[in-house]
């Protein structure tokens, strides 16, 4: 075993991966610069399939940046430079010949604030399938919409008013609508950027239940500022601080016996 400290992170990443099963997405030595700011420093992380991976850490530590590396949304900002390697099923998503649009159909995203389009509930869900041509007929499309809303646990609440505007729903319903919208494209991975931070506790509870259910069909990466939420919904947790991967491992271990002093301090609420 190599004891070089620079490989400690790598060891973390590998220790976290389940024996035998190759990870769904892999980040290796990822560096992100926003202009002069070095936002991510040499982050390596394995995302295991059909699990929920939580990214925790103090505000501004770069956890959302890590998340956005997986669907290349960091490129939306001016002057962003990303180096290193990120793969999905072994395929490099930063390779020259990769179609970002196709990648984002495989790796969906749910944002911090619910952002339904100012269209009907039906059209919100049908948006992705329409642009990707997932439905041949009108019936297909209706079926996709219904299945997605069912999956997001929203169907019973909205089935009678699919023509109503998506923006008229409550915040919690809007967020589940956004999850349904992401599901409708049939992605393999769903990235969630603090999906509950704008919601009340009851709506948060519903989303957490939903995440638990979705794990059976999707690989989920969730950024959260709530340690309780990370503990409740995730199987693995990565602690990120100051743009670096602090610690990564099974959630249970992380919260019971953290290996690093800083992780322990953060979890105990003494740092952050």
């Amino acid at each position: 075993m190599n004891v070089d400290p620079s490989n400690a992170l790598m060891r973390d990443a590998e220790a976290a991966s389940a024996e035998g099963i190759p990870p769904k997405m892999v980040a290796r030595s990822v560096n992100v610069h926003y202009g002069a700011t070095h936002a991510l420093k040499d982050v390596s992380l394995d995302i295991q399939g059909y699990e929920v991976t939580a990214l925790i850490g103090p505000s501004g530590c770069g956890k959302s940046t890590v998340l956005r590396c997986f669907n290349r949304m960091n490129e939306m900002f001016e002057n962003t430079q990303t180096s290193g390697q990120v793969t999905i099923d072994g395929m490099d998503i930063y390779a020259r010949d990769i179609d970002v649009v196709a990648l984002r159909a495989r790796v969906g995203m749910v944002f911090q604030r619910p952002n339904p389009f100012p269209k009907s509930i039906f059209d919100n869900i049908a948006y992705g399938p329409r642009i990707h041509g997932l439905a041949e007929t009108k019936e297909d499309l209706e079926q996709i919409v219904e299945a997605s809303l069912q999956r997001a646990g929203l169907w019973d609440e909205v089935k009678d008013r699919l023509k109503q505007s998506g923006t008229a729903l409550s915040d919690g319903q809007q967020q589940r609508l956004c999850i349904a919208r992401a599901i409708a494209v049939q992605p393999e991975v769903i990235l969630m950027d603090e999906p509950c931070s704008a919601l009340d506790p009851i709506a948060t509870g519903k989303i957490e239940e939903l995440i638990e259910e979705l794990r059976t069909g999707f690989t989920i990466v969730i950024v959260t500022h709530s340690m309780q939420q990370a503990a409740r919904v995730s199987q693995r947790t990565a602690f990120i601080s100051r743009g670096e991967l602090g610690e990564y491992g099974p959630t249970v271990e992380m919260f019971t016996k953290p290996r690093h002093e800083r992780t322990k301090d953060y979890i105990m609420g003494r740092y952050g």
Partner: peptide, 25 residues
């Protein structure tokens, strides 16, 4: 910009985003 990002994250191109989301809004 949340609407724009939402549309892009669903895998639509900028042109599709402009046509389907930005112009109607």
């Amino acid at each position: 910009s949340a609407l724009r990002n939402g549309s892009l994250a669903l895998g639509s191109t900028t042109a599709e985003t402009v046509l389907n989301v930005l112009l109607p809004a």
